[in-house]
Design a binder for these strands. Structure first.
Lengths: 294, 294
DNA sequence: ATCAAGTGATACCAGGAAGGCATCATGTTT
DNA sequence: AAACATGATGCCTTCCTGGTATCACTTGAT
C-alpha cells in the first residue's frame, strides 16, 4: 500500500510539473521525491508521469489517479476533525427521551436552548414514559430524559425543569364550570373519573391519589397519556386531573378548572441523566446549561 | 498525518475489540499494534478506544472515525485499479452505487445495457444506501447511483428506472394466506410488524406510513435492509411491507400477498448522477442511453 | 485469600526505510 | 562547445517500525 506522503508528493509534482519546485513546496530535496514517485508508480503498477529530461507530463492514468489522490487527501484531512469534534462534544448525537406531557410546554424552548449551546449536535427525540426512559438511560440508549419522579438519585443526577399545578379537565358546559367559588374535593366525589394508569403513569397516579380523596368506584377509564385523557373528557366520558400545561393542547369541548390551593401538590418534571456520562455532547451541554438555568 | 497501516490497525481492533486477535489478523504481534493505535489517537487528537484492561470499546469519536477509516481504506484500494486499467488501454471506469433492493431486479439488465453502450469501460459496483450514494456522488467517489427519492433535483439529474408495488410478506401458512379475497388494512391491523428504519430507510418508511394505517404499537423490529426484513418474516417474527422484487429472493418460509390496489403507491428507483459530470465515460453513457430508454 | 490466566502497556533492541548531500546522465541553450 | 537545467542514482545517517521479553492490572477459580 502507498503512503499519504507519496500521495502528497505526487499531487505536488502533478501540479508543479517540476520535481525541484514540488520538492521545495514539500520542504524536502528533490532526490527523495523522485524516489517517492518511482515507488508509488511501482505500487500502482502504472506510469503516472512522463519525464522527458526537460519537462514532466501526466499520463492518462496519472490524470485519473490524481483525482483519486486529491480525494483521498481531502478525506484524510477531514476525518480527524469530525472525530475531534465529537470527542469534545461539539458535534455528535444527543438522544433525549421525553414524556408526552412534557412535550407541550417545555420541550420546544429546551430544544432551542440546546441548539444554542451545542448547535452541531443532532438531537434524537423519543417519546417514552418515565419507566422506559430510566431503563434506557441505564443501558446508554438514551443520554437525557425528561421524566418525573421517582428515580434513583444514586444512579441519576437531575435538574428540576418545571413544576405546575394539577387542574381538573371537565367537558365544556359541565355544571362545575358554573360554580362561583373554587371547587373542592366534595364537588367531584360523584363524577365519573378518567384516571392515570398506576403502572404506566405511576407518578401521576400516586400524586393524585396522595393529594385527593379518590373514589375508586368512579374510575371509568385508566389511561397513560394526557392527550388521551383530554380527548376522553372532550367526549364527555368523565373528568380528569391533568397538569396545567394540558390547557395548551387546544382540544375543543374541554374546560380546565383550578383546584383548591391545598390540593395543589405540584407536578414536577426533571431532566435526568446517568451520573456516569459517556457522551461528551451531554457533558458539554450540562457544563454550559447550569448557568443558563439560574 | 496518520498512515494507512494505522488505519488498518484501528479498523482491525475496532472490529475484533481485542488487541491480540486484531494483531493476529494483521500478521503482527500485539505490542506494536498498541503503539500504532496510541500514535493514531495522538495524531487524531481524540481517544478512539476505551481500554479497560479487560475489554476494549469504541468511543463515540471512534465510531465515526471508524466509518471514515473504512471509507479511506476502500478508496485507497480502489484508486490504483482505475489507474492501472486506463494504463492498460481501457478508456475508463464507471462507478455505480446501488441499493441492496435494486440488485435483484434491475441491476443485471442495466449492466448489460451499459456494456453494450460503452464496452471498453470497466464498471465498479458498490452496494450503498441512498444517503451514502448521494454523499459519494457529491464528492465524486461515485459516478452513477441507483437510488430512491428524495434527492436534490438541483444537484442531481435523474431518470426513473423502475417502479413496483409493495406487497405484504407473511410467514408461510399464516392465516392471511388462506383468505379468499384481497387483503385490506383491517386484516393486518393486529399483526406484529417489521418496519423500515425511519433513519436508514427513510424512503420506505415514509412511503409505508403515508400509504397504510400503521399501528406503531405493533412494530416489533426496525431494520433497514429488505433482506433482513424477509429473513425476520421467515423466522415468524411478524409481517412486513416489501417491494415486489423481494419475491425474487427465494427465501423459504415466506409468502407474499398483494395489497389492495388503492394502497399501492409505487416504489420508485431512479438512476441519479451529478449535473456537473467529470467522468467522460458517464457523459458517453448518458448521451446514448436516453435513446435506449424510449 | 491466594494463585493462575488473560490482556493491554512498556522497555529495549535490531532491521529497514526515508531523507539529505554529492554526483551523474542527458538534453537544451547560447 | 560550454554552461545550464533537470531528473536519477549512490551513499550515509537518522528515525521509525516491528519483534521479544516483561510488567501492571484485573478477573475468576480453588
Amino acid at each position: 500500500m502507498f503512503t499519504f506522503d507519496q500521495l502528497a508528493g505526487f499531487i505536488a509534482v502533478a501540479e508543479e510539473l517540476h520535481f525541484g519546485r514540488a520538492a521545495e513546496r514539500l520542504n524536502m530535496t528533490q532526490p527523495p521525491l523522485s524516489r517517492q514517485i518511482q515507488k508509488l508508480e511501482k505500487i500502482i503498477g502504472a506510469e503516472l508521469l512522463e519525464r522527458d529530461n526537460r519537462k514532466v507530463q501526466l499520463t492518462n492514468a496519472g490524470k485519473t489517479f490524481l483525482e483519486e489522490a486529491r480525494r483521498l487527501m481531502a478525506l484524510a484531512e477531514r476525518a480527524p476533525v469530525s472525530a475531534r469534534r465529537i470527542a469534545s462534544g461539539r458535534s455528535g448525537v444527543l438522544r433525549i427521551g421525553f414524556t408526552a406531557a412534557s412535550g407541550f410546554s417545555i420541550l420546544g424552548p429546551l430544544l432551542e436552548e440546546i441548539a444554542a449551546i451545542i448547535p452541531d449536535v443532532d438531537v434524537d427525540l423519543q417519546e417514552l414514559v418515565t419507566g422506559d426512559q430510566i431503563s434506557r438511560l441505564m443501558t446508554g440508549e438514551l443520554d437525557l430524559g425528561l421524566a418525573r419522579p421517582p428515580f434513583d438519585r444514586e444512579t441519576f443526577d437531575s435538574h428540576l425543569l418545571y413544576q405546575e399545578a394539577l387542574v381538573l379537565a371537565v367537558p365544556a358546559g359541565h355544571p362545575l364550570t358554573h360554580l362561583a367559588r373554587d371547587i373542592g374535593p366534595k364537588d367531584f366525589k360523584d363524577e365519573p373519573l378518567i384516571m392515570h394508569s398506576p403502572i404506566q403513569a405511576r407518578y401521576f397516579y400516586d400524586l393524585v391519589v396522595r393529594t385527593l380523596p379518590i373514589q375508586h368506584g368512579n374510575v371509568v377509564h385508566t389511561v397513560s397519556q394526557v392527550l388521551t385523557m383530554v380527548s376522553l373528557v372532550a367526549a364527555k366520558r368523565g373528568v380528569a386531573f391533568v397538569p396545567h400545561s394540558a390547557t395548551l393542547l387546544g382540544i375543543k369541548g374541554v374546560e380546565f378548572l383550578p383546584l383548591p390551593e391545598g390540593g395543589g401538590e405540584q407536578v414536577e418534571l426533571h431532566a435526568i441523566w446517568s451520573r456516569r456520562i459517556t457522551n461528551p455532547a451531554l457533558s458539554r451541554l450540562l457544563r454550559d446549561f447550569e448557568f443558563a438555568m439560574e
